[in-house]
Design a protein around this nucleic acid. Structure first.
Lengths: 210, 210
DNA sequence: GTCTATAGCGGGATAGAC
DNA sequence: GTCTATCCCGCTATAGAC
């Protein structure tokens, strides 16, 4: 305990106050770090204490922003949903072809896979799903559905443009692509071999492309 | 607390002793229930107390069989590996065709998906992977590798027999099939729709079959 | 808005009687 | 081999000073 206190005071910047006391948005910072922790350790795998240490504040202060941990969890999923939603809007506004949109998806997750410590937010909560507070479950499902719907629309568009193969329904393929990405991030992390995710993406293309 | 104690005494059978005191193998029973709990709640989502209540014994007694929780976790993965290994042996000894072996795999996981509370043991530990004690990680990886190797051999055989398509390498396809199954169980549980897993299997066949 | 202090619980684990 | 009793820890959460 003494050790920790020393460590903290060493880490402080020259001002006597925590680095982030001046930040406009500690809540944003909390969200960011919490998301990282969720992706590396899962929902039950991190505590307010972990967050407090990373931000150099006391854990009681976090309750000011997120009264209960389920508020934080649901908040994370809502931020995730917004981000996914905005991303989809951006891809659409760029008038990308279905192939390019799919590439954007694959690129994003390939990059994630290279950090062999993280998985995607959906996968991160998946195995604990049954334990999650209801608020978190609901927000989680919303985010997952958002991915599903977008993916299905991209695949549908790719079929109409003749870029994608029409084997199986678009819904089937969408379900499939998302499950493979989610599972692939998990298996490649556990096998300590990010390259395995690359193989998986390659195979996904083989399936999708005409 | 008083409530719980009353409940426990009500649940006891007519003998003054716990139901399972006569069982030849409480360790087996513990393993079985723990596996269920892992598949529904994840490794950090259940406690010795949960096990104790299910078996109507005290939690201290569990430490006799599994001194620390990591022994239990690693034990579960080892049992899982043995089971998987025996299953593979059985499939091989039956001289099944690659298609039939793949069917056996898909049938097993389809059945699992119908119980909308459980996922597969691999998926259950995947999101908590970074928090798992080293012993558990190692046993987990062994089990995962066992699946990979078998799946790759089945796919390879199916190519040679002309049953399966040769798009991509066998390793790629194997990685892919397993990731899709793992992820698919998770997404269909979270979306509360076991039928989605059926769609995914259908799509897997579409991809594999010539 | 951040802190100290603390409540209250439940977790894993151990000692020692039986 | 199972129990009671207990320890110690870390967690979420709250109260109240500043």
């Amino acid at each position: 305990m003494i050790k920790k206190q020393l460590l903290q005071s060493n880490e402080k910047v020259s001002l006597g106050r925590p680095t982030l006391a001046n930040s406009k948005d500690i809540k944003t910072e909390l969200t960011k770090i919490a998301m990282e922790l969720v992706q590396t350790r899962g929902y039950n795998g991190f505590s307010y204490q972990d967050l407090a240490e990373r931000l150099n504040i006391r854990k009681a202060s976090i309750h000011y922003y997120f009264p209960a941990k389920e508020d934080l969890g649901a908040g994370l999923m809502e931020v995730g949903l917004d981000r996914v939603h905005d991303w989809h809007e951006k891809l659409r506004s760029q008038k990308l072809t279905p192939t390019e949109m799919m590439e954007a998806y694959f690129d994003y997750y390939s990059e994630l896979s290279e950090d062999a410590t993280k998985i995607c937010p959906c996968g991160a909560l998946a195995s604990e799903w049954q334990n999650l507070p209801q608020k978190v479950q609901e927000a989680y499902t919303n985010m997952l559905n958002c991915h599903s719907e977008f993916m299905e629309s991209v695949i549908e568009a790719g079929r109409q443009s003749g870029e994608f193969s029409s084997k199986g329904t678009a819904q089937e393929q969408a379900q499939f692509v998302l499950a493979a990405i989610m599972g692939g991030l998990q298996t490649s992390r556990a096998q300590g071999n990010p390259a395995l995710f690359g193989l998986l993406i390659h195979q996904l293309w083989t399936m999708l492309k005409k």
